[in-house]
Design a protein around this nucleic acid. Sequence first.
DNA 1: GTCTATACAGTGATAGAC
DNA 2: GTCTATCACTGTATAGAC
Lengths: 201, 201
Amino acid sequence: MSHPVPDLTQAASPTRRRVLDAALALFSEQGYFNTAIPHIVKRSGVSIGSIYHHFGDKQGIARALYADLLEGMDGALAAICHQIPDARGQALAVVEYLFEQAERAPLATAFMLSTRHREFLPDEPPICSSQPFNRMRDIVSRGIARGEMHDGDPAVLAAALFGGPLRLVQLRLDHILPRPLPTYLVEAWEAAWLAVCNTRG
Amino acid sequence: MSHPVPDLTQAASPTRRRVLDAALALFSEQGYFNTAIPHIVKRSGVSIGSIYHHFGDKQGIARALYADLLEGMDGALAAICHQIPDARGQALAVVEYLFEQAERAPLATAFMLSTRHREFLPDEPPICSSQPFNRMRDIVSRGIARGEMHDGDPAVLAAALFGGPLRLVQLRLDHILPRPLPTYLVEAWEAAWLAVCNTRG
DNA sequence: GTCTATACAGTGATAGAC
DNA sequence: GTCTATCACTGTATAGAC
């Protein structure tokens, strides 16, 4: 039932990890284009030769990082959808996960949610069409089908349900919100749920 | 009562305008860092010497553009807040404005809402603390005070109210939503308002 | 104010020893 | 697989004529 899958990708290499960690920090703090390879060399302690050996080019670093984080996020959402039956519970768990993750791993969350990946990864599909975001839309579609949420365009309802919480994450990552996100969870969720819940229920 | 203020800034210069228009198009389509000065030269028809004469450096172009668009957006929101008395009407008008503006001037809207300005304008304050966004929070604060919206943290309520619509704008600008934004206005607004309205009213 | 030609730095990427 | 040294180039910015 559990999935301990031991890194099918070759992410286990220690140098690879060090480069990805350094790149994540630099990309999140100053942006992809403000980060030169020598910066990554300094911060990671890995030589430029090794970096190019592992990743091919600069885009390759961002690509590997992006795939890595997408996979982690999708795994979390998959687990949620698997363990919780009702759409409301799933959506709440997703928001809770996003809030906790933004505090635990702000750099990773910022790189996932607050970055225009297309500018430096022209071949990647937009993040809205990625697995995790598809799952969010699926939750909403199922919520409508099950009568938990009122009828309507799934895209609009998904925006209404997750738009507020995602905006709060953004504000927190930009250091606008003073308190940790989980302290806003109850209030933010109540408002979000009111926007989509079925009043006939 | 009206404010025809004839461009206090020296934005009237025709070459200045041509440069700003070209820069807006290029920055929005491919990003600030993927846009080289020679690109702007080609697209605007203005020589590199004139560009540097007017804007000082590359950042100067982005800075002028940003100030220009912020001023326009703030003027629109100011007019809304001035003409409409109740918070609900103001908020609805703001969402309507954002939806229309995203269709009428998608490049400008994308540059304002979907760009990490800090990456190339390190001295600018974050957009969340700009005039237009302050007005949105003010609308919410007044809505709470007037009893139109239920009590709570203004930041959370503002995110709940505008987060969904702003997310739809994002999706539309990324070419994910098939139909023009105004066609989603009624449904999006109803959901947004449900999230914050005072049920005792 | 506008233009052309040019200087100069920093960057992504490679070669090749170990 | 890891490293150092180096290349080739793009892109910002300036000089100075008109």
